[in-house]
Amino acid sequence: MIKFLNPSYVFKLSGKLLSLFKAVLLPIVVVGLIFSLFLSPKDYIQGDTVRIMYIHVPSAWISLLSFAAISFFCILNFLFKLKNVTLIYKSLAPIGLTFNIIAIVTGSIWGQPTWGTWWAWDARLTSMLILMFFYIAFIFSYKFINNSDRSIKACTLISVLGLINLVIIKYSVEWWSTLHQPSSISLTRETTVHFSMLIPLGLMLFALIMYVAVIFLMKYRIETIRIKRKGIRKL
C-alpha cells in the first residue's frame, strides 16, 4: 500500500496502464461505433435520433462520476493534507468538464427533433448546467488561487456544494415534473431500454471510460514531470 505513495513507482505503473488502455481504446471505439451507428435498430418513435443517446448518456454518467471522484480526492486532501492527490483531481477535472459539455450539447441536439426545443429550464437540464459552473469554479480555484492552503479550502467548498448538486441531478426527474424523461436504467427497477440498444450503450460507455483513462493518465504523467522539473510552468 505504501508504494502507491511513491511517485516514481506510480509513474512507472501509470506508464504500463497507459499502454494497455491505449491498445484497448481504438478497437473498442470502432466496435462501439459500428454497433451504435449500424447494427443497433432504430427506435420505434424517435427513429435514428436514438443513436445520440449512445454518446449522451455515457457522457453524462462520466461527468457525474468524475465530479464525485474529484470531490472525494479534494476532501481527502483537505482532511489529511495528502499533497499527492492534488495531481489526481487536477488531471481529472478538465476531462469531467469536457464530458459535461458534451452531454449538454448532445442533449440539446437530441431535444430539438424530439421535444421541439433546444433547451428547457427544467430541473434536470438546469442542475446539469449548474454542474458545469461548479466544474469551472473548481478548475479556477486551483488554477488562479496561488496560496495552496486557500485554494484547497475553495475547492473543498465547491466539492461539498457540488456533491449536493449531484444528488439533485440524480433525483431531479423523480422529485419534480421535468421535460427530461426519467431514468431508463436503474439498479432497483427494470431497465426500459431494449437489449439490442443496451449493447451499443454499454460498448460506448466502456469506450469513453477507456478514453477518459488514457487522457487522465497522460495528463497525470505530464504533471508529475512538471513537478520534478520545477523550471516548467505549473498547471
Binding site: 427506435d43 420505434y44 418513435i45 436514438v50 421535444w115 426545443t117 421535460l179 424523461q181 440498444m197
Partner: peptide, 12 residues
C-alpha cells in the same frame, strides 16, 4: 407545444 419522451427505448 413540446413533446415529452418517456423512458422507453425499443426497436419498431
Amino acid at each position: 407545444i413540446l413533446a415529452k419522451h418517456d423512458e422507453n427505448y425499443m426497436p419498431p
